[in-house]
Design a protein around this nucleic acid. Structure first.
Length: 277
DNA sequence: AGGCAGGCTTTTA
DNA sequence: TAAAAGCCTGCC
């Protein structure tokens, strides 16, 4: 089944795929015109979506499913153009330039559990290495599925499945010292000690504080989970790149108050812009 | 008490 | 060999 949809707001599949917030999007092909086709796994399903020119996209699901599931996943209820245009060029030329250059990035509403594990795995590693570990984890213990075009892929494992992994299996994921953190997170999700649904109802800073009670989750990872998994759009992860941005571009301080409650969106523009340079 | 150095696994460039 | 979407422990 193929359908064509139009997306009016800022939306760039490639920029989102390269933004470092999602690690399992699969680039399936690039046609002669340079149009990309991705497979995007989410919970128990996946979407195959292709650029079809301009604001048009071809999808492999019904328009109804797109509205019910994927509209939310892509956060299409938030107007990113409007958020982007709050930045005044004369006020903040750096952020203005970053946003212009990275227009089309969105903050996905990813599965909180998958986001939690993914960003625990992410610490002190580069993106290709993160993707590799997550892929191995899914292939060892996730359910095998087929997409609508017959290709096999793996779903992200539930907490139970991770708890049942042997030490040898976990070691195959090449998590290094992080494997203990992953196992603990699975146990605490399973037992209810860590309740992601509750955290997503709180203010961003309280959610981050709650996440940081977990061993292996510091401020940076907690901020990423809050932003990309709990959709706390005001969370502002500070990693090595953002540290450079703050030091080089904002020696007199960065005006977070002014950019609330969308600090996380602006952070993504700056992160992507600086990393590309 | 809060800040900082050193160590940690493995991959990537 | 240094750096990577860092965190923990121990020391001061």
């Amino acid at each position: 089944m193929k359908n064509i949809i139009e997306i009016e707001d800022d939306f760039d599949l490639e920029k989102i795929a390269e933004s470092g917030q999602c690690f399992r999007w699969q680039l399936l092909e690039t046609d002669q015109a340079g149009r990309k086709k991705y497979r995007i796994p989410y919970r128990n399903r996946c979407l195959i979506i292709s650029e079809a020119g301009g604001k048009s996209y071809e999808i492999d699901c019904t328009e109804e499913e797109f509205r019910e599931i994927w509209w939310d996943y892509f956060d299409l209820s938030t107007n990113y153009e409007k958020v982007r245009k709050r930045i005044r060029k004369k006020d903040d030329p750096f952020l203005y330039e970053a946003a212009k250059s990275c227009m089309g990035i969105r903050i996905l509403k990813q599965d909180p559990w998958e986001t939690l594990i993914s960003f625990i795995i992410s610490q002190n590693r580069n993106i290709p290495a993160i993707k590799r570990s997550i892929e191995i984890l899914c292939s060892i213990t996730g359910d095998m599925k087929k997409d609508s075009e017959g290709r096999e892929y793996y779903a992200f494992p539930e907490a139970d499945a991770i708890m049942e992994m042997s030490s040898e299996e976990l070691a195959e994921c090449k998590l290094g010292y992080r494997d203990e953190y992953v196992r603990l997170a699975a146990e605490n999700i399973k037992s209810g000690v860590l309740n992601l649904a509750e955290l997503s109802e709180m203010k961003a800073e309280d959610a981050i504080e709650g996440l940081m009670e977990q061993k292996g989750i510091g401020l940076k990872v907690a901020s990423c989970v809050a932003l990309f998994g709990l959709h706390q759009l005001d969370a502002f992860p500070v990693d090595v790149w953002i540290k450079k941005v703050l030091a080089n571009e904002y020696p007199n301080g960065y005006p977070k108050e002014k950019y609330a409650p969308y600090n996380g969106i602006y952070q993504q523009y700056m992160f992507a812009y600086y990393r590309a340079k």
